[in-house]
């Protein structure tokens, strides 16, 4: 028995309307990281958020047509996952260009909004990790705000250790799981 089918249908309908209305696109799940330490590739579809698959499809088409890096202000930057050190919410310098690109996009598109999904690795207690995931996403939000992004465009949701991108009890998996995902 599922909670979601009704909600999913509704959300897909809404998101399609949204996509049509303001050309916001989906994606932003763990699997579609294209940079950083994870490098898990972007082939797996679906995701946490309903409507993602539809949005990503549209996004993919556009990418195919335009075939260029997401440096223009009217496209959502392609890299939507950044990674963190253990027990840290500090933005690593290598990811500052990623945040800057998202900030520029959001400034240029005031009607666009993003959910910053904070994640941790599995070590430690779940509820404390939920708080740590929020702290990471908050750090990204602050960075965006300093760069002039309106707080009304940004929402933070922490998943703690509940939605790992990679399985396993090793540093490689842990490194892929300590992340913040930009979900548009």
């Amino acid at each position: 028995m599922q909670l979601k089918p009704y909600a999913r249908t509704l959300a897909i309908a809404l998101s399609l309307a949204f996509v049509a209305g303001c050309s916001s696109t989906g994606g932003g799940q763990d699997g579609d990281s294209t940079g950083g330490t994870g490098g898990t590739g972007g082939t797996d579809g679906g995701g946490v958020s309903t409507g993602t698959a539809d949005g990503r499809g549209i996004n993919g088409d556009r990418d195919g047509r335009e075939g260029q890096r997401a440096t223009t202000d009217d496209r959502i930057p392609q890299t939507r996952t950044i990674y963190f050190e253990y027990d840290s919410d500090a933005i690593r310098s290598e990811f500052e260009p990623v945040l800057t690109a998202h900030a520029r996009f959001l400034r240029a598109n005031p009607s666009a909004s993003v959910v910053l999904q904070g994640h941790t690795d599995e070590r430690g207690t779940r509820e404390y990790n939920l708080a740590l995931g929020e702290r990471r996403a908050d750090a990204v939000e602050s960075y965006l705000n300093v760069q002039g992004v309106s707080p009304s465009q940004v929402e933070v949701v922490s998943y703690g250790e509940e939605r790992p991108a990679a399985r396993g009890q090793n540093e490689q998996a842990y490194a892929q799981n300590r992340r913040v995902v930009f979900a548009y």
Binding site: Q2, L3, K4, R126, E127, Y159, E162, R163
Partner: peptide, 12 residues
């Protein structure tokens, strides 16, 4: 007995 299922996390 399963009392709830979801494709989003359940906790605590």
């Amino acid at each position: 007995q399963q009392i709830l299922s979801s494709d989003e996390p359940i906790m605590s």
